[in-house]
Write a protein that binds this DNA or RNA. Sequence first.
DNA 1: CAGAGACGTGAAACAAATTCATAATCCTCA
DNA 2: TGAGGATTATGAATTTGTTTCACGTCTCTG
Lengths: 303, 303
Amino acid sequence: MHIEFRHLRTIRAIHQAGGLARAADVLNITQSALSHQVKGLEEQAGVELFARRSKPLKLSAAGHRLLKLAEKVLPEIEALEADFENLRSGKSGRLHIAIECHACFEWLFPVLEEFRKAWPDVDVDIRPGLAFDALPALEKEEVDLVVSSDPEEITGVEFQPLFDYEPVFVAADEHPLARKPFVVAEDFRDQNLITYPVDRSRLDVFTELLTPAKVEPRAVRQVELTAVILLLVASNRGVAVLPDWVVREVRYHSDYVTRPLTASGVTKRLYAAIRSDDATKPFMAHLLRLARKIPVQLQRSEA
Amino acid sequence: MHIEFRHLRTIRAIHQAGGLARAADVLNITQSALSHQVKGLEEQAGVELFARRSKPLKLSAAGHRLLKLAEKVLPEIEALEADFENLRSGKSGRLHIAIECHACFEWLFPVLEEFRKAWPDVDVDIRPGLAFDALPALEKEEVDLVVSSDPEEITGVEFQPLFDYEPVFVAADEHPLARKPFVVAEDFRDQNLITYPVDRSRLDVFTELLTPAKVEPRAVRQVELTAVILLLVASNRGVAVLPDWVVREVRYHSDYVTRPLTASGVTKRLYAAIRSDDATKPFMAHLLRLARKIPVQLQRSEA
DNA sequence: CAGAGACGTGAAACAAATTCATAATCCTCA
DNA sequence: TGAGGATTATGAATTTGTTTCACGTCTCTG
């Protein structure tokens, strides 16, 4: 059989208009077209859809069954069309974010919280970018935004700067290094270093400090959760290097101290990588605005 | 927009088959047709349905939305097609019965009870034929079967005999006429006659007895329910003439007596009027078989 | 029972979907 | 990385399906 939406609309119109001729008016086609259509449908279905003996054409049992379907299904596709209209106009969309930097949750959650108020229809998700390569996934449209601190030249992808941050050294306050005003690569040689469980190429402490200086810590322990890292540091089981936004609370907490890396400190810049296609989407622009503003506010308000 | 079921099937097939070429195979059309179709759909909808950058074509956000619709809607129309198949094969259908004779409920209910066991998918209904003309309604396919005792010549309609019955006189046992072995027209002249609230042309007591004899009862009272008629008769508020199947129970009840009309009694025949089209339908044939057998069984078993 | 209104039908015109042939991409693996 | 296989895209021709036009048939109503 070969029922189509057209037929559902037809059935509904004939029923509502109470006759074929009137329905034809409503549907903006000729009465003849409707007659052919109904005939074709009945042949296809092999059942009579209308009581043919009465003149203002009336639905038969089978016709009523079909009408029931029409009244169930047609609103569904009207809803779909509304959804698509939202997509087209940019009111809705998909915003799946991959974060390569494990600690970015800290500022991203407040940003998304704010974002969702303005764009309730946008499908937001975060995928910790540990298990896959985020940038190829961005190109393949598996995700829509990648937070990264290493801009690359990729056609069709643009890196928009978000904000600067400082990776800082964190240690227990009774730790010997806590007495120094700043730390250098050599200081790590006899330390237990606690890091996120990602490749060294994604850890600031290695890329900015230890790898160039060819310094290897005594041991490296990988821990998933930021809170646990801080716990371990507080109980003097090791030291860590974390972005400054993560250790905001540390300043109110006498168990920890934070110190700059090298005398001048290290400054890094975080970027949002997006496909150029998406750059003009209103919700994307809004998100980027929030992602520039809110983390800075957080840092200031708790400074 | 102009979404059609074809598109829903397409989306589902592409998703399930995991690619356009394989889906084309499943749908028995060429890959080219699918490509054109998807393109057309995307233009119509104004949204991208697939992530075009990856090669085994993958659904985009909008595509997933459409898929959701497809998976909701397609089973619905598959169910419809199954229903139509039942209609075609005669397993289901409509059987709306109009009864002109008010008392026919009495034997019709047992018949339908039995019928529904064999034909659960047939849509059965009874419309007391008081408010409308049953035979024109039958012609217009508003109803499918009319129970009547007056066959007419109507093209496209046939009257099939069901069973014979006898309209009998009913009175309280202390009523004077109870002493007579039978009653005649003249006996009604000074009686309160209780009848169903229908035209005299449909009441056996008038058509068979009083109208030909030009006898008018002292009073006629119209009562809807059979049980109430019997109640009134029992309390000697009047007399009635009812089909024998109605007063079966009377024989066990000392309050009433039944007497034949005239010395020889009156015999009438009940018919089922159906459209000739329907005569070959299996469920219709079955119903008629039951309607010939069961009332007779009931009469015998309680005689 | 006539006439207005409502539906049906066949042929022609029109529109849309599909195919064919082939080009453009993408993906994989040596 | 580049060759080859796999996958999707495209344009023109073809096929299929839908609509219109013009007129015929049927029904209901007064």
